[in-house]
Design a protein around this nucleic acid. Sequence first.
DNA 1: CACACTATAGAACGATCGTTCTATAGTCAA
DNA 2: TTGACTATAGAACGATCGTTCTATAGTGTG
Lengths: 191, 191
Amino acid sequence: MSKDPEYLAKLQDYYAEHRILPSFSGMGALVGMKSKSAVSAMVGRLIEAGYLAYAPDRRIQPERRFFEREIADTIQAGLPRPANDSQSEVCSIDEYLIDSPSRTVLLAIKGDSMIDAGLMPGDKVIVKKGAPAKPGDIVVAIVDNEFTVKYLEQDKTGFYLRPGNKAFPNIRAQDHLEVFGLVVGSFRKYV
Amino acid sequence: MSKDPEYLAKLQDYYAEHRILPSFSGMGALVGMKSKSAVSAMVGRLIEAGYLAYAPDRRIQPERRFFEREIADTIQAGLPRPANDSQSEVCSIDEYLIDSPSRTVLLAIKGDSMIDAGLMPGDKVIVKKGAPAKPGDIVVAIVDNEFTVKYLEQDKTGFYLRPGNKAFPNIRAQDHLEVFGLVVGSFRKYV
DNA sequence: CACACTATAGAACGATCGTTCTATAGTCAA
DNA sequence: TTGACTATAGAACGATCGTTCTATAGTGTG
């Protein structure tokens, strides 16, 4: 029925490329509309639906739902997708991975000491600074003035760090173990 | 000397909040300038320095350097430098991983057939539908009406799918291999 | 000190902005 | 069919846009 999803997709693509949204006439050219009033109406609908919003200076900014990404339906893999895909599930990656931006930092994995945990060299881990960690969690600790990502473990002598790779030894701090933060997620980009 | 870094920081903060950049007069209000010509000059300097650029409709868009974060972000008093120095960090993971939203879907990994590739059950992969794939790439193929994530490989008899786990066999389609898309990234959340 | 250089202020300009109005085309239900 | 509703086109409007000019203040050099 409505072509709004198609328009939204074009705005999302434009945004992914330029990191800003175009003006109304720019949007018209982008989605193939010839009148700004049509663009204005469409923008109104997308605002109503939670995809766009007004910035303080009345420019249009993307809203929460603008960054929702579609999750492929495993069941219907082979079948052509029905046109009314309003049912399809969505996920906002940033919201999914980060719940407290101010306490969150990213760190790149170096070496393959956590390879069995699925953390490969170059992967980025999402670290929640100062979050409480318990044995079995993956943490970022400070060893010899460097960040290191390892499993946090505990035995009768206290806490220690266990690599996710049998070829590496456990690390036990002499006095006390300094945990920088908790690893709450990771991500990776293929070239 | 120059207050440009301070101005840039305010623009970055504004962008982080609104995901767009304001107009020249908006920028002036943001950074405390009273004339648009000063803003224009500043924008010119930031463009020259690679932080900003012109979008097709002459709006200002952020450039690559705009998203680099100071290493100081992860330094705290008394703490060592992060191990990933000189690596630029990205504000939005979504924007880092997805460059063509309309062609992108997410898919959850099932089973451990790609465990050696660092893809564990429950991980989400970012799939670029219809993107060209070459041998060695990780792809999403449709086998028996279900999505499957495997390495795409090629030998003298043609293309086949190779799991990232020696315990699983290669998959060779009888007639032709249906590749749904290319895996361009992945992410994972720890409980 | 004089001089060169830079950053900002302020004003003027045409271009473009977003809003708002009316009009047209299409769809759906009765 | 008629009527209600929606989406788009087109035009007009004042507001705002970004550019460009001159002028002023500050800074560093010699």
